[in-house]
């Protein structure tokens, strides 16, 4: 642990590299968290299958490479396929748990998460896979080497986020979603078909996850059971930033990405996941202490 710290001391630019790399991946985390916050805020469902949907998107791009296409081409396919799948999942499962207590939706999506993991495991096996992008690197300095794919994914994540925000502001459906998020009953009274809004929201989230997954498969490796960590990252970001706080989500996403990269380097790769999950516990504890100060509880 201290050897690595010393390395950074010897070459401070290495630290810059670490943080920079972290920021690039942080954009992806923020995108995934935004999807979670959308579903959470609009329909009050805590989607524990979030990470598994990301991994599912990753396998779509991996499948594209198996068939000899470039993984980036899988992006629109993943968006469309995941949208359909999200709609189907809503119709079969989520519709029936939307109005129930929150543990029900949490557990139902946890079951869904197991289901996705196992289906992927059956089809692709438990080995790690990668969707080779072949984009190469570019070098700013001896110590600052950046994979081009990370740069592209930052740009794509940004573009997707902007597209979604514009959609939410301008389109009919976007306005209906925001109205439903504020007060579902009032929206229903005013003639908004909230069932359709919910279905669309969940499907949109699945699309976001799918797109993020395509990028994840190019940057890192994917494996059927890696989803849970993405779910936890998304929960950390949403819990820390709060619902409906887009700038907060983006900032926290960047922060988490940087922390993870730095912590993984300092404590060793085997503790990278632990560093993320412990961050979740810390964020929850922070919220708890904050609420004690105002004589309240975290719910």
């Amino acid at each position: 642990m201290f050897e690595n710290l010393y390395l950074v001391y010897l070459a401070p630019l290495m630290g810059v590299d670490l943080i920079l790399q972290g920021l690039f991946i942080g954009a992806l985390f923020a995108l995934i968290a935004y999807g979670l916050a959308l579903v959470w805020g609009v329909m009050n469902v805590k989607n524990l299958a979030q990470g598994d949907m990301v991994i599912l998107g990753g396998y779509i791009s991996y499948q594209a490479t198996l068939w000899g296409y470039h993984p980036m081409l899988a992006m629109p396919v993943a968006i469309i396929l995941m949208f359909g799948l999200g709609w189907l999942i809503y119709a079969l499962i989520i519709r029936r748990v939307v109005d129930r207590d929150m543990f029900t939706s949490l557990l139902a999506t946890f079951g869904l998460s197991l289901l996705i993991q196992q289906v992927l495991n059956l089809i692709y096996g438990p080995e790690v896979k990668v969707a080779e992008s072949g984009f190469g690197n570019f070098q700013l300095d001896t110590f600052i080497i950046i994979q081009n794919v990370r740069l592209y994914s930052l740009l794509i994540a940004g573009a997707l986020a902007i597209a979604i925000v514009i959609f939410m502001k301008k389109s009919r459906m976007g306005q209906a979603i925001r109205a439903t998020a504020q007060d579902a009953r009032a929206a229903r009274v005013l003639g908004i078909n909230t069932d359709r809004v919910y279905a669309f929201t969940y499907a949109l989230n699945a699309s976001i996850c799918g797109a993020a997954g395509v990028l994840v498969a190019m940057i890192w490796v994917i494996q059927p059971y890696y989803g849970i960590v993405y779910s936890i990252r998304a929960f950390i970001i949403v819990t820390a930033a709060g619902l409906g706080n887009l700038p907060g989500v983006i900032l926290t996403g960047f922060g988490l990405g940087a922390w993870e990269n730095v912590a993984g380097f300092m404590f060793g790769a085997e503790f990278a996941v632990a560093a993320v999950v412990i961050m979740l516990v810390l964020v929850l504890m922070y919220r708890l202490l904050q609420s004690y100060r105002v004589r309240q509880v975290v719910r």
Partner: peptide
């Protein structure tokens, strides 16, 4: 922590301890 936060927090803690 209440409700879903407790569920997610304990899940996270289990993963953290395992790791």
């Amino acid at each position: 922590l209440r409700g879903p936060y407790f569920a997610i927090g304990t899940l996270g803690l289990a993963v953290a301890v395992a790791e």
